[in-house]
């Protein structure tokens, strides 16, 4: 028996439904999982073009499970050193620290096994949906989180191999190696929800352009660092005079 000061699990609420998937969670995840399908497909295509061994590139899906980071890894493998690949991937995924921080309160009331397993499926979309349920009773939150986590993990791990199978059949004239660039351009624009984020993207892009000639794709790291610094300065600058710029939205896509 736990002495939970927070919402108590009602027996009537959970009895009989405990082991079923949450229907609300299924319908909530539908609009978010559909756009992930072409992304996973493009990643599958990129994997077949990658300099990485096929097994390792494929394993990024179940083990890393982060589209933008996976696409980066398989795309720059072969033209960047190991440390450059690792730092690019980790910088991209560092945003998940924020998700972890935001979801820490509801996980305080969850069993240890879920706390260990939950991070494995904590992609952007899962975070964006789960953070809206922070105040639900622990049992409902658990069912909701597990359902959306399973949906995204399953769909992703079906779609990526599909792209890997179809990839080699598509002729080179389709120029599908350009598809990841278009995806990243779209993700960049979707991620800009506040002015400082726009400044971060603009400076990041310009510094990356200026540093494009550097070997080892060093421009990515330089651009990212410069962008984050510029964004922080813009944040500071905008926060001082007016109090009306507090409309933050959780769950940036990408």
């Amino acid at each position: 028996m736990s002495a939970d000061p927070q919402p108590v699990e009602s027996a009537a609420d959970t009895a009989g439904r405990r082991y079923r998937l949450d229907r609300t969670a299924l319908s909530d995840s539908l609009p978010l999982v559909i756009p992930a399908i072409p992304f996973g497909f493009v990643l599958g295509l990129a994997i077949t073009e990658s300099a990485m061994p096929l097994w390792a590139a494929w394993l990024t899906s179940p083990l890393i499970f982060a589209g933008a980071a996976q696409l980066t890894m398989v795309t720059i493998a072969g033209s960047a050193s190991l440390w450059a690949i690792i730092s690019a991937v980790l910088v991209i995924n560092s945003r998940h620290v924020m998700y972890s921080a935001a979801l820490a309160p509801p996980f305080r009331h969850q069993p240890r096994w879920l706390r260990w397993l939950a991070p494995l499926v904590m992609v952007d979309q899962v975070f964006a949906l789960a953070v809206l349920r922070n105040d639900e009773p622990p049992a409902s939150f658990r069912r909701y989180y597990i359902t959306i986590g399973l949906v995204f993990f399953t769909v992703w791990n079906l779609v990526v191999p599909l792209g890997m199978v179809v990839g080699p059949i598509i002729p080179d004239s389709w120029q599908l190696d350009f598809a990841p660039v278009v995806m990243f351009a779209g993700l960049t624009l979707f991620a800009i929800k506040r002015v400082p984020a726009g400044v971060a993207a603009l400076v990041g892009g310009l510094v990356s352009l200026a540093a494009a000639g550097l070997s080892d794709r060093l421009g990515i790291l330089l651009g990212a660092v410069a962008g984050v610094i510029a964004g922080a300065i813009a944040d500071q600058w905008l926060a001082t005079p007016t109090p009306d710029n507090t409309t933050e939205q959780p769950g940036a896509p990408a």
Binding site: A68, T72, A88, V91, I92, S94, R95, M98, V181, F184, A185, L187, T188, A191, I192, R194, P196, A197, G198, A200, A201, L202, V203, G204, G205, L206, V207, S208, L209, A212, R217, G219, I220, L221, L222, G223, A224, V225, A226, G227, V228, A230, G231, A232, D235, E248, A252, A254
Partner: peptide
């Protein structure tokens, strides 16, 4: 929050 936009923009351009 600015890490995503910054790194994605840098990556796209590169």
């Amino acid at each position: 929050q600015n890490v995503g936009p910054a790194v994605l923009a840098a990556l796209t351009v590169n």
